[in-house]
Design a binder for these strands. Structure first.
Lengths: 370, 370
DNA sequence: CGGAGTTACTGTACCGGTCAAGAAAAAGAA
DNA sequence: TTCTTTTTCTTGACCGGTACAGTAACTCCG
């Protein structure tokens, strides 16, 4: 490069183009350029063409999202709060299916999906990331994130959660489904029935009913559904809890724990199909056959249920519908809040409860004769 | 309510508190209130206490994220571009594992993860959502989203992609892994080898080498790796393509298609473990045993590989490491861009290539004697 | 031909913060 | 005591848009 050529200057990046840059170049007001992008009906087609051409030439991409978010009060995304460990949530097939359904439903509205992480030391996405609303999904241990979302007065839809007053929610009928599962086992003649559930902040262990109070919505409703018909039949349930870890490994471990007990349970009601899969392994480890020597019932009716041998008797829920409805509900709340001007979480909150259904397959049978 | 009490006024929601509101109440400047939240070392501890107390009393949650994003040029989230159908991507276990690893790594930096949907008619998240950077993951048919991200001059890390000049990337050694898989089959004595791959915009069908040009990075590298040792050994590969649908169903379908051919392939190299699982089914449907009558090789070494019976011979890649490295690389680029002031995508881009490894399990054996 | 109604564009205020430089008071050094 | 230095707070400009209320010209209609 010749020393006389001051090319260095040239490498300095041109200042980023803004509406004003374009306006000056075209000789119109900034507002007109804004309209060219955001409200095409506000100016003549030919001027718009001219503006867009100049914008393109200047490398202008479109209105700055952050600025637009500030001015319009719209961020263009919605948050999804899964659990404090996103990784953990994403290894849960059911949770992923839910997110997937939400994404599919929210996509056409032009919004992106922001997965809220637990954040670092000083930054908390639930408090510090711009969004138009949020979906709070179950299995959250740390409720502080929910607290931030609420304080921000964001539109929120709660899923698999007791919604606070004034908030919309989408739930499934855990109670009815669990009842059906337990009744099924009772009618087969089982009397030694164990319940393997997850529970807030819990490690492995046997629970008594006093502990149920520490449960979140889903756990509580299912345990209630499982135990009620048992108690009515004079059968004392054995409730064990496992942590929020890898459900299959944990299910196996809890299965071992159960199968060592005496009297040995003849049936296990599981919080999820994945846990049931773990119990299958424990049974296999112990040389017990399902369902001849051990009946197993799952929950969710995920893909896994039919991959297992024998196919799993389980309680079906429609996760995709749950996701779609949650997304719809959230969009509805957002639009309503927007229409009302204020950020006020207004309007009549809607509570949806989806039905569940017992699906009897090959993993349940009468208990072995004593 | 008595008519004399003008309570109606009261129901109007108090205007949302801002820094100014608090400043006025405390009797300091707006900037000081800002510092109380964002730069605690800039004011005395006691004044800060007082400010925070008033803020709390006014229901102030913290600096408005959108405003802060505009002023600081930091959004607090990073985008992840998976495929034009998020749902499809989320049903892919490998993709989910990747996202999960990214989330885990990015979380502590205080950023959230925004899944970019394909958007609606007029809003395109890749263009219209504020973010600090983005990760572009493979399996994208529609590259316009990438175009928007690039035009925005965002920090981007490409994964399983040929990165454009100047961009960092994280890839795996698809070529070496595929070579090892093919060589393994050849050394077992196979001569009728089929390749079942996905490919851009492709429907089911047999391909000839001219079509390879339409492939994206991963497909191209793998096909190259599979075919090279075969051609060197004088074996003509049969390459078939399947669409981006449900991989297991599609694998089954492509398996049927292959097994009907004459001469019938004695081995199939699959683009993924999931496709291999589909081929297992097709083999089972056709009454063929793996590996006695059909050898199958997968790719990824996902969970599935060991769930199959027999366990799947496959090429292992470390998806979690890929995700972590991508996240690290992105954060590095973001910090660098920030340090350099301009949005310029500067600094030396880094290209990481992770190694792959053939894992021989039970799904491969010598071809049946003719 | 005059007033009502459009169409096409402009001007100003505001969204809610942060940055950088400066001023006043308090502390430390010569 | 006087001259730095530090601490603490303030001022004014700016981030890049959008809303809303004009204004001027142009069309429609009796």
């Amino acid at each position: 490069m010749s020393p006389s050529a001051p090319a260095a200057r040239h490498t300095e990046r041109m200042a980023r183009a803004t509406l004003q840059t374009i306006a000056d170049r075209v000789g119109v007001s900034r507002m007109t350029v804004s309209n060219a992008f955001s409200r095409p009906d506000q100016l003549s087609a030919e001027l718009r063409e001219r503006i867009l051409a100049v914008a393109d030439a200047l490398g202008y991409v479109g209105p700055n999202p952050a600025a637009r978010a500030l001015a319009k009060g719209v961020a263009g995304n919605v948050g999804v709060l899964l659990s404090d460990s996103l990784t953990q949530a994403l290894t849960d097939q059911v949770a992923v299916a839910f997110v997937s359904a939400v994404a599919e439903e929210i996509g056409p509205s032009g919004r992106a999906l922001t997965l809220l992480t637990s954040g670092g030391t000083d930054v908390l996405p639930a408090r510090d990331v711009a969004m138009d609303g949020a979906i709070v999904y179950s299995c959250i241990q740390d409720a502080t994130a929910i607290g931030w979302l609420r304080r921000r007065e964001l539109p929120i839809v709660f899923v698999d959660h007791d919604a606070p007053a004034g908030y919309s929610s989408v739930n499934i009928d855990d109670h009815v489904g669990a009842r059906a599962a337990a009744s099924h086992l009772l009618s087969l003649g089982h009397r030694q029935i164990a319940i393997a559930t997850t529970g807030f902040n819990g490690d492995f262990g046997v629970l008594d009913s006093a502990d149920y109070d520490t449960f979140a919505h889903v756990e509580r409703e299912r345990v209630r559904g499982w135990t009620e018909p048992m108690l009515a039949a004079g059968v004392e349930p054995l409730v064990v809890r496992l942590p929020h870890g890898d459900p299959i490994d944990d299910g196996r471990r809890i299965g071992q724990l159960l199968l060592e007990r005496s009297p040995r349970p003849t049936a296990v009601l599981c919080f999820s199909d994945a846990i049931a899969a773990g119990v299958y392994r424990a049974a296999s480890d112990a040389g017990l056959r399902v369902p001849a020597e051990l009946s197993v019932v799952g929950f969710d009716d995920s893909r896994l249920a039919r991959q297992l041998q024998p196919e799993l008797t389980t309680v079906r829920q429609d996760v995709a519908a749950k996701g779609r409805l949650a997304a719809q509900a959230l969009v509805a709340v957002i639009e309503r809040a927007r229409a009302q001007g204020g950020k006020r979480v207004a309007g009549r909150p809607k509570s949806v409860v989806l039905s569940t259904e017992l699906v009897v397959r090959g993993s349940t049978a009468a208990p072995p004769a004593v």
